[in-house]
Design a protein around this nucleic acid. Structure first.
Lengths: 205, 205
DNA sequence: CGAAAATTGACCCGTTTGGGGTATTGATAA
DNA sequence: TTATCAATACCCCAAACGGGTCAATTTTCG
């Protein structure tokens, strides 16, 4: 028996979901909430296996709600269930601790399957969402940087000093400096830390 | 009709996969290869919709193979099909450009479903793999850093100078310096760029 | 071949940073 | 209630960094 709670401001949707879950063998939903505050207040007394969470909520945002709930009940499995297919919502939800992300056109059968899946250690996502998530890993090959500059950038990212990079690459410190100047110009940054941040954030390395 | 090619060194597995695919309506596999080199040489002449790719290959590694193939045929959908559930293989594959990752105990039915899924814009993954991928987004809350130090670290990550951070936080530059010393000690780093790299890599920010 | 880009090297100068001390205040924990 | 820690602030000094300018050689590509 998998226990499920729901946070969803739309009364109708919330009731429908509860009815669906309670009407299916192996699932039960005893608690559901109209906004984050009440869910947070109640979650430690009535801790479900799986929490279905809307994002566009009145009051505290679903993202904030997820963070707080995961702090209090780290092992809870949270599926975001929302109309928003917006990139930022997806990544912010996952960063906050959600393990699943379904858009609201999900069929009842798929939703139940997703609940089973997340409870079994998976991470159910709508197909487009999964692709978005996986694509975010893809390395970019910034053609503006020359091969040698990429070498230097890689060393920058492990925080070597000019001197150390020079030794590693068997070139003079002045040449390292020169490459770094080009890198800064091309990446439009003005310091090592900015270059490192850009390289890591934009997945250049 | 979805066209599929295979790179897999084990002759038996390769043949079985081809037979499975060719024996199913809507799928066809005309080309399969024992190692990356021949796949790379042939891929532009015979470009499939979906490529099933082993990782543990003789000669060039599957990861390298994926990088090269994606450079030549950026739109090809690649599913890694391997025995390795190893974290590094998973993330390296996705960084290289794979969009799916299945472990070899996948059932034939699930494999065919995965091929349809990736061709339809999804990112099929075994359940444990999906969880691993999604979990990698989770923010860590490094309790060793004090709240104020987290503030400073956040500003460091957008590459502000000590002076700018001081202005933003309404404290003296010397206090910023002090916080940064503590951050360095706690994160065991010795420079801004190293702190930024650690913060971004370890998802502290 | 000839132009453009990549790679290498150098010097100057001012700013920023990193590591070392020291000290006060307030909150929090033992 | 004492002790510890967070947060605030200052000083000194050497090393590292960022920006400016100039120049030679090699590679690459049209």
């Amino acid at each position: 028996m998998i226990t499920v709670s729901i946070v969803e401001d739309d009364e109708d949707i919330r009731q429908s979901l509860a009815i669906l879950i309670n009407g299916t063998n192996g699932f039960v939903c005893s608690h559901h909430y109209g906004e984050c505050a009440s869910a947070i207040a109640d979650i430690e007394r009535h801790t479900p296996d799986v929490l279905l969470m809307d994002i566009g909520l009145p009051g505290m945002s679903g993202i904030e709600g997820i963070k707080i709930i995961k702090l209090r009940v780290p092992n809870i499995d949270i599926i975001v269930l929302t109309a928003h297919e917006n990139d930022n919502y997806v990544f912010e939800s996952l960063c906050a601790g959600a393990c699943g992300y379904l858009i609201k056109d999900t069929t009842p059968a798929r939703l139940l399957e997703a609940i089973k899946e997340i409870h079994g250690g998976g991470a159910p996502m709508s197909t487009q969402i999964a692709r978005m998530v996986v694509s975010s890993f893809k390395r970019k090959t910034d053609s503006t940087l020359s091969p040698r500059e990429m070498d230097v950038l890689n060393h920058l990212c492990v925080s070597h000093s000019y001197k150390m990079i020079a030794e590693k690459l068997f070139i003079s410190e002045e040449t390292v400096r020169r490459h770094i100047k080009s890198i800064y110009r091309k990446l439009e940054v003005h310091s090592k830390s900015e270059a490192v941040a850009k390289a890591l954030r934009d997945r250049l390395v």
